[in-house]
Design a protein around this nucleic acid. Structure first.
Lengths: 208, 208, 208, 208
DNA sequence: AATGAATGAGGCTTCATTCAT
DNA sequence: GATGAATGAAGCCTCATTCAT
């Protein structure tokens, strides 16, 4: 008991061990946020480390205290973007049971992120810088891991026998991800778009 | 036969008008071909003018006899790629009348090009370098022009009333273009893939 | 005796003077040892303060508690290396009287150190970093001081009149120091090498 | 015959093929010369590519038209230095027959170069930058090749049976090369120094 | 005594581009 | 038509050092 009454006077001590890392982590996050925004607007290759430093309120050399190389920033941005997507999708499907509803919920969550304001998600969709970088293997692994969610969702769908589920999944993902090339906020929300697209796949068009 | 006897008197003129331009054009095409291949494998930004020159059998300075700037090469590559697509699609739908068959023919042609060996088409699908370049407006205009084909094809489709044809078109294009991110030559040919995807949109999945 | 009775009242003083400095001195020695090893294997310029810190189990900033600048580490390493040599030579010649035997003893001691495992001595022989540093004057002074030993030894030698003792000394030192560029532990020990070399100078080769 | 009368009007053509390379070669030599001087006075690591460019009358980027990397300049400087030595020694011993005289001639030539004004030879003797560079294997090979000359010269010497010729050679080379650490132009010339040193090895000191 | 974080200058190198020849 | 040589800006990154804590 004595200790517990003695320590309250020095709350810094307790928080020091808990706050220091956050400090560093904050700066790191600042770099990532600035980088994601720059990557989105100018592309990875056209963004210089100087740009990133300036946007993060640092000097160029300081970036290298937090990241070993420019490509490690790319990796971290991609990781964060995929994590955003993953978190959103997983929490969206948590309480949904019916297969089509579950898929729809996942698509809505996915699309809300990629069409939302997250610069991170935008970075995920621009694959070309990632594919040509030295960290592509790691990025590809994370992407695959994320796509497993959709594989499961599509596999659970009640579809006519003979349906190629792989093509179905990839066609759906293509339709959905392609939206970020043309979508502009306006009449329809990302969620409505998701619903429409899932509906297209579900019901088809042929009136006959 | 007559020409061969008539022309010999002005050999320079003829060679100037008939041989030089081809020669120059040949070199230009060589640069474009090499560039498209390099852009495909390394990306635009990671391809240097030196790389292009080396792959074209020239020295760096010589490139500038054919193009005013690196980004003009990008523009020309994109133009050629879109032209390939356009030619293929237009000739494919020429003799087809039925709307769904016509769309299918277009998709098959489109997909054959983008999944084929044309480095030019691959360059077209990597939008990010183009979007961040100074020639993006011109590239965007060409892409739009090409997509008009598909707008027409989708508009001619007999679909249930209330169908959002814009979303349908974009979803279809998304599914189709997305293939170049995952397709590997093997069991199914690009044409079969196109058929499958169009079928998905046409018939839907819901067994009920 | 008086001091020992006066001090017990201030135990802090004693521990401060007797315990803390050793601790600090230990860390300092650790830095020097790590530095000597790194300088030997990578050279002074290619060794970063970070390298030294890591090899000493510290962080970069901590080095500066013990040394004001990287070049002061170089100075300290050189000083330690020369001290090793000096101690070895002085104790080796202590009980030897005969001039040639005395020189031989010195050479054996010298060569044992420079061909031994002391990273410090190796640092001494790599003159180029030292010569280009800002602490070169101090280093040069220490080297000169050490070489005085050999000057004395050579001056005491009974040699034919007309012999240029300066050249003799420098030729001998050259032969001896050069060994560290080619010697590899094996058949002959450093001491045997020293004996051979001194013998060469003493007896000459010309059979006539 | 006709051609020979037609061509004189364009003498540039002929010289173009013969002068262009020299032009490039001249600039390359300028870089090497400036580099050797800078390496001698500041050391390789403390010499920046900017320094070299400035001393060669170029901009930093231009250096890389002539050399692929800073270390390739080091390699070229070392190569030139060793070539100087090799040429000097080979031509010096060409007409000498008697073994001791031949060795002496070689030593004189060698020492004239290393104590002369050639910045290249000075670079050769500063081994530490070379040893820590990535081009060390190539440099080491060239050095070995050069030292073979001396191996031959020492092997041809008439010496008492039991003499270790390897140690003899290395001791002699040590004495000779060490001079560049202490020699200052003055009373004795490099050649006189060489004679004295060879004499030391030949005749020994022991008056008995 | 030591550390974490940052600094800012400077390192080597690449690059698109130019231009006399 | 093409080349060789150079340019100069900018690229990524490392480094010795500092300083509040």
């Amino acid at each position: 008991m004595a200790p517990t009454t003695a320590i309250p006077h020095t709350p810094q001590n307790q928080t020091k061990a808990a706050r220091r890392p956050p400090r560093r982590e904050n700066r790191r996050q600042a770099v990532l946020k600035a980088s994601a925004a720059l990557f989105k607007s100018k592309g990875f290759e056209r963004t210089s480390v100087r740009d990133i430093a300036a946007a993060s309120g640092m000097l160029p050399g300081s970036i290298y205290f937090h990241f070993r190389a420019k490509e490690e920033i790319l990796l971290a941005v991609q990781k964060a973007g995929i994590q955003h997507l993953s978190d959103a999708v997983e929490s969206a499907i948590l309480d949904v049971q019916e297969p089509w509803a579950k898929l729809e919920a996942a698509c809505i969550a996915h699309m809300r992120v990629i069409l939302g304001e997250s610069d991170f998600a935008a970075a995920v969709l621009d694959i070309s810088a990632a594919r040509n970088s030295s960290v592509w293997p790691q990025i590809a692994a994370m992407r695959d891991e994320y796509e497993k969610n959709f594989r499961q969702l599509v596999d659970d769908l009640p579809v006519p026998p003979g349906t190629n589920r792989k093509y179905l999944r990839l066609a759906l993902l293509g339709s959905i991800n392609w939206t970020h090339r043309w979508y502009r906020p306006g009449r329809d929300s990302p969620a409505q778009l998701a619903v429409e697209i899932v509906w297209l796949f579900r019901c088809g068009l042929d009136p006959e």
